[in-house]
Every structure is written in C-alpha cells, then in structure tokens.
Computed example of a mutant assay.
Amino acid sequence: MAERYSSFETGGRRWLWQRITAAFLVVVLAFHFFLLHFVHHAADVTFAMSAGRMETLSYYSLMVLFLVTATFHGVNGVYNALINQGLSGQRKTAIKWVLVAASALLIVQGIRTANAWAGLPTF
C-alpha cells in the first residue's frame, strides 16, 4: 500500500489555511462572475464603473482581502509543490524568501492599484 505523503507539516496551520483560502476564493470568484457576467455584462463594464465600485468601502475591502488571500493561496501552493518535488536545504530557504518577497511586492502593487481606482492616495 502506498504511503501518504504531504509537504505540509503534521499539526501545521499552512494546510488548514490553504483550505480556508480555497473556500474563500470560490465564494469571491462566484460573486465576481455573478456581478460581472450576469448583473453587468463584461462588454458593458467600463473603467468608470470599476472605479465606482472600488469607491465603496465594502467592495474595496473585499478586493484587497481577495488580493491577499489569492496571493497566499497561490504562493503557498507553489511552495508546497516545490517541496513535494524534493526541494530542500539552502534552495528551500532561498525559494521561500524569494516567494515571500514576490508576494510582498504583489500585495503592495495591488493595494496601490486598488487605492488609485478608489481615489485614495497611493504610497
């Protein structure tokens, strides 16, 4: 019988957070498809409409949370896939910090973009 293998540590929280973020992403993506494909057809969406939605605190907050959640989910998945392929030692540490830096840059740029759409000051 095959032995169960997972790159997630026993008792670790990254496994749980991967599942929680997946569930959240499914719900937010369903909201996105409903809003932009049934309420407003994609061909009718304009930059001004998008900016108008981003000016609403609830929508802005949801999009920023979506950005952070999707970034964590994606990076955590890539990191664990690499570990499953045998990444270890110094390479594992280097890849981890490269992914952390890339995530930070993605989140900062995403928030700057969201702020610009919402008419908030960018940093």
Rank of each mutant, 00 (worst) to 15 (best):
Glu3Asn: 09
Glu3Ala: 10
Arg4Trp: 12
Tyr5Gly: 02
Ser6Leu: 05
Ser7Phe: 03
Phe8Thr: 00
Glu9Tyr: 03
Gly11Glu: 05
Gly12Cys: 08
Arg13Ile: 09
Arg13Val: 08
Arg13Ala: 04
Arg14Cys: 08
Leu16Tyr: 06
Gln18Trp: 03
Gln18His: 09
Ala22Thr: 10
Ala23Pro: 02
Ala23Asp: 10
Ala23Glu: 08
Val27Met: 11
Val27Asn: 06
Val28Glu: 04
Val28Ser: 00
Phe31Cys: 08
His32Val: 11
Phe33Pro: 00
Phe33Glu: 13
Phe33Arg: 12
Phe33Gln: 09
Phe34Pro: 02
Leu36Pro: 00
Leu36Phe: 09
His37Met: 10
His37Ala: 04
Val39Tyr: 15
Val39Pro: 00
His40Glu: 15
His40Asp: 14
Ala42Tyr: 15
Ala42His: 10
Ala42Ile: 11
Ala43Arg: 14
Asp44Asn: 09
Asp44Pro: 01
Asp44Ala: 12
Val45Met: 10
Val45Trp: 11
Val45Thr: 09
Thr46Asn: 05
Ala48Phe: 09
Met49Gln: 15
Ala51Pro: 02
Ala51Ser: 11
Arg53Val: 04
Arg53His: 06
Glu55Ser: 10
Thr56Met: 12
Thr56Trp: 07
Thr56Tyr: 10
Leu57Trp: 12
Ser58Arg: 14
Tyr59Ile: 02
Tyr59Lys: 03
Ser61Ala: 15
Leu62Pro: 03
Leu62Met: 15
Met63Arg: 13
Met63Cys: 15
Met63Val: 14
Leu65Met: 12
Phe66Thr: 04
Leu67Tyr: 02
Val68Arg: 00
Val68Gln: 00
Val68Ala: 06
Thr69Lys: 06
Ala70His: 08
Thr71Asp: 11
Phe72Arg: 01
His73Phe: 11
His73Cys: 03
His73Ala: 07
His73Pro: 00
Gly74Gln: 09
Gly74Trp: 12
Val75Asn: 07
Val75Tyr: 06
Asn76Asp: 06
Asn76Gly: 01
Asn76Ala: 04
Val78Pro: 02
Val78Gly: 01
Asn80Thr: 00
Ala81Arg: 14
Leu82Ala: 12
Gln85Met: 13
Leu87Lys: 03
Ser88Cys: 11
Gly89Asn: 05
Gln90Ile: 01
Arg91Asn: 14
Lys92Asp: 05
Lys92Ala: 11
Ile95Phe: 10
Lys96His: 15
Lys96Arg: 15
Trp97Pro: 02
Val100Thr: 06
Ala101Cys: 04
Ala101Met: 07
Ala102His: 01
Ser103Trp: 07
Leu105Tyr: 10
Leu106Phe: 13
Leu106Ser: 09
Gly110Ala: 07
Ile111Asn: 00
Ile111Arg: 02
Arg112Gly: 05
Thr113Pro: 03
Thr113Met: 14
Asn115Phe: 07
Asn115His: 10
Ala118Thr: 14
Ala118Asn: 06
Ala118Asp: 09
Gly119Ala: 04
Leu120Lys: 02
Thr122Gly: 03
Thr122Gln: 15
